[in-house]
């Protein structure tokens, strides 16, 4: 009899010799709320499945691990043609309305409210949770230099500043996911 408790199950795979995903390296490159969350959710989800995970924060994505910025990330309401009000099935928000002061804060408030309902934590809490779950959090050296960031600017969960070369070294055997 096959082992019904075999983990992780490769569900729906026609080819039974396929290897399950064992390790992921997720790159978060954008600093808007909707730019940061997908990577965080994927990293956390990986750990929940017993998959090794690390996140490499680069460019504005770095804001997710900078103490003063991490809990103030906002939804981009300009240059985002998919944004609709009051929800995803509502009316498209024209870019010029998105530029009105306060619009981004409002869209952020709405999105955070909906996220809380489905138990997605705020960025700071999520970073702590992902780190406690055993994922590694790295920042990109080029960005750290460019933004003139100091070690004390980062949240304590940030493990190390890496060059892109070191990132590739640490990603041996990983699936690299760019967000």
């Amino acid at each position: 009899m096959t082992d019904i408790f075999a983990e992780p199950n490769v569900l729906g795979a026609e080819d039974e010799t396929l290897e399950p995903v064992k390790k992921v390296s997720i790159v978060i490159s954008r600093g808007s709320l909707e730019g940061v969350y997908p990577g965080l959710i994927m990293a956390n989800g990986a750990r929940m499945e017993g998959i090794e995970a690390s996140i490499f924060f680069t460019f504005f994505g770095l804001h997710a691990i900078v103490k003063k910025k991490m809990n103030k990330l906002k939804v981009a309401t300009v240059g985002n043609p998919a944004l609709c009000v009051p929800d995803a099935m509502g009316m498209a928000l024209p870019t010029f309305l998105g530029a009105i002061p306060g619009m981004s804060a409002f869209a952020t408030y709405m999105m955070k409210k909906e996220m809380e309902k489905i138990d997605i934590p705020p960025v700071g809490e999520f970073i702590e949770m992902i780190h406690d779950a055993g994922a590694k959090l790295y920042s990109c050296k080029a960005t750290v230099d460019m933004f003139k960031l100091k070690p004390e600017d980062f949240c304590p969960q940030m493990d190390k500043v890496l060059t892109v070369g070191e990132f590739y070294e640490l990603s041996a055997g990983s699936q690299i996911i760019f967000t």
Partner: peptide
């Protein structure tokens, strides 16, 4: 969810992953 689980059962995330290694929620 893991978040509700850790907050309401009083078991911190780190310990949860130690108690149920390799995928706490499913396991």
């Amino acid at each position: 969810s893991i978040r509700a689980l850790t907050k309401q059962s009083g078991i911190p995330t780190k310990e949860l992953y130690e108690l149920f290694p390799k995928g706490p929620a499913k396991k």
